[in-house]
């Protein structure tokens, strides 16, 4: 019998103390969000799939663009598309899923999560959550590790692989310059002919979304996508079809960042990691020493 009872209790106390420290610690570097932060509600039942939002987004962000007329081409709907480094937003179309049996169109872009995993994964804080909603990107801080691309549950950030010297991570900016800095609407929201996408305060949009569901329970499914998904997102969706059937991932109500952050930040909170490590080493040394003496 190597370990005495007293020693065993000591070990247990140190170990449980450090474990309790980990679980009770919360992420500390989370952005304090403005209660009046912005968001966008996308009501898929109004979207006509005209793709004018794609054109306006390209214009506003100085991305390569074609003529307005060329966006009437619906042949792009034949394949599911994802945003690219030259397209911050794309519209996908799901045949026979619409209200009158027609197509249901889904605009895809950065969801601007409330607790973004990309921000959490970014080791140099190039990606940040703005208190008013957008997830912003600072190219001069970015080291190109692309952890954000892996972390995103919606597979949104893209990378300029074609640029050898100045590659950047690219994604929707929620038109930060237009909206929060100049009081305009995001380019896509401004051009939308049916106002299927509405820009406003996130809390107002949630109210509006639930109001629409309450008024037309036969039209909408009772789910506002983005209200709780990954801890909430700034872009939210209303639909007449279950979201998992129209390309939306089924996600937990907790942000994936919450678990990793609570472990990682917890370990180093109050120098608890090193203390625990050296404490454990000390105990082992003491035990070994006693065993040696006993022999």
């Amino acid at each position: 019998m190597g370990i005495e009872r007293r020693e065993f209790l000591k070990t247990l106390a140190v170990a449980s103390g450090s474990l309790a420290g980990v679980s009770s610690l919360k992420a500390s570097n989370k952005t304090e969000l403005n209660p009046d932060r912005f968001g966008v509600l996308s009501d898929l039942t109004y979207c006509i799939g005209c793709r004018k939002c794609e054109w306006a987004c390209n214009e506003a962000n100085e991305l390569p663009n074609q003529s307005l007329d060329s966006f009437s081409d619906t042949s792009v709907f034949e394949n599911m598309r994802r945003p690219t480094s030259e397209k911050y937003t794309v519209v996908n179309s799901f045949a026979n899923k619409g209200l009158d049996g027609g197509a249901l169109n889904v605009k895809v872009q950065c969801m601007h999560c409330e607790h973004p995993p990309c921000v959490s994964a970014c080791i140099v804080s190039a990606l940040r959550k703005h208190p008013d909603g957008p997830v912003t990107y600072n190219a001069s801080a970015c080291i190109g590790c692309r952890y954000c691309i892996i972390a995103c549950p919606f597979q949104i950030p893209t990378y300029e692989y074609e640029k050898a010297l100045t590659p950047q991570v690219r994604k929707c900016t929620l038109c930060l310059e237009r909206t929060i800095e100049n009081g305009q609407l995001p380019a896509c929201v401004e051009i939308c002919p049916t106002e299927a996408i509405v820009f406003g305060r996130r809390k107002d949009l949630l109210e509006l979304a639930h109001e629409r569901i309450r008024k037309h329970p036969d039209k909408y499914i009772d789910h506002v996508y983005g209200e709780y998904e990954v801890g909430g997102t700034s872009w939210m969706y209303l639909s007449n079809q279950p979201f998992n059937e129209i390309g939306f991932p089924e996600l937990d109500d907790k942000s994936p960042a919450e678990l990793t952050e609570s472990i990682q930040h917890g370990i180093f909170k109050g120098f608890s990691g090193p203390i625990m490590l050296f404490g454990l080493l000390g105990i082992i040394m003491k035990v070994m020493k006693k065993e040696e003496e006993n022999e």
Partner: peptide, 29 residues
């Protein structure tokens, strides 16, 4: 009042409500 569409939204919803139903396209022209 976010629920009330602006003039642009109102016109398009009104027109497209029928136009989309029978033409199955969104030709702005």
């Amino acid at each position: 009042d976010l629920n009330k569409p602006s003039l642009k939204g109102s016109y398009h919803r009104q027109c497209l409500g029928c136009h989309r139903e029978w033409s199955h396209e969104n030709a702005c022209q």
